[in-house]
């Protein structure tokens, strides 16, 4: 899958700068709730929570798409599995967040294991399309799931509890739990991509032939990454359901999957900081534009087209252009 290397080559020296940027973003996020309260704009907390939920999802996608060159067009399915894990378990009387997350992770991982094993037989455009097909399957499954509202989705009775505590009932509580998980996801993936495993994964992205010629079979590594990525995205789904107190198949439509790719490309593929930033900016942009006009999609679409035409490499490409992320040689 060499077709991606053009945007993927990540200059080494930019790494430290990216990590600093990520830490700065975390610090900035941490002060959002007090700031929002002080400004008398509590809805900012809700929007920031949404931004972070999608940032976790985008981070998970970057593991396979950015580091593994597996362009999945069905990743929103795992947002759905996570969300429905909350809906189904809470209806069965299990409202504990930890248990719901375990269920979401298991369901997502299992679906990814089966569909990933089949999808990874294909390459390039075919891989993109088969992951899309599996995403659609999951989507239609929940659309026809009339016990849970089918097409319309279903409202949750309440947010999940954490070990019996109503930690998520307030927006601030949910915000900090989400931030904590975002940092955990970032840190985990940061280590993962630099580990032996991550090295094999990125090596396969660069040249599968080279990796085979030194004795690796790419498939087990790619499939493992695919499963890990799905599991993390499932966690994001759990948070999404809690944030909206509502679950719907719309979370897993192909539009969402496309949007997740858009977040990554906007931020810069193959860089965790880029993926996270891309998601934060995308959601903020959507929410911001939606406040201006009901036709905000027109403006948002134009921005996407212009970024694609003018700035290969997304935001980090742009920053590099202006020398804000220096890459020494």
């Amino acid at each position: 899958m060499t077709y991606m290397t053009q945007t993927l080559t990540e200059p080494r020296a930019g790494l430290a700068a990216r990590l600093k940027l990520a830490l700065a973003i975390f610090a900035l996020l941490a002060v959002v709730p007090p700031l929002a309260h002080a400004m008398g704009e509590p809805f900012m907390i809700i929007i920031a929570t949404r931004m972070m939920v999608f940032a976790i999802a985008a981070l998970s996608l970057d593991l396979i798409l950015g580091h593994g060159a597996m362009v999945s067009f069905g990743h929103a399915a795992y947002l759905g599995f996570g969300s429905y894990a909350v809906a189904i378990l809470s209806r069965a009387g299990i409202s504990d967040l930890v248990l719901q997350m375990v269920a979401a992770v298991l369901a997502s991982a299992l679906f990814a294991l089966v569909t990933g094993a089949i999808s990874l037989r294909t390459r390039g455009v075919y891989f993109i399309m088969i992951t899309l097909a599996f995403g659609q399957m999951a989507y239609f499954f929940f659309v026809s799931f009339s016990a849970l509202g089918g097409d319309d989705g279903v409202a949750l009775a309440a947010r999940s509890t954490v070990l019996g505590l109503p930690l998520l009932q307030g927006e601030t509580g949910l915000f900090y739990v989400t931030l904590g998980l975002l940092i955990a996801a970032f840190a985990g993936l940061y280590l993962l991509t630099r580990s032996r495993f991550g090295r094999v994964l990125t090596g396969t992205r660069e040249s599968a032939l080279r990796m085979q010629a030194i004795g690796f079979r790419p498939l087990p590594y790619q499939l493992t990454a695919y499963v890990i990525s799905a599991a993390i995205c499932g966690v994001a789904g759990v948070l999404l359901a809690n944030q909206a107190v509502y679950v719907s198949p719309a979370y897993m439509s192909w539009h969402r999957s496309g949007e997740m790719i858009v977040m990554l490309v906007l931020g810069g593929v193959g860089s965790l900081t880029g993926a996270m930033t891309g998601a934060l900016v995308t959601v903020a942009l959507e929410e911001g534009l939606a406040r201006f006009s009901e036709h905000w999609r027109l403006g948002f679409g134009l921005i996407l087209v212009l970024v694609a035409l003018l700035s290969p490499g997304g935001l980090s490409g742009l920053l590099r252009k202006f020398n804000l992320l220096r890459d020494d040689k």
Partner: peptide, 12 residues
């Protein structure tokens, strides 16, 4: 094994 997920490979 290359199924090691956390220790940075570049420091081995």
């Amino acid at each position: 094994s290359s199924f090691r997920f956390f220790r940075p490979a570049s420091t081995e």
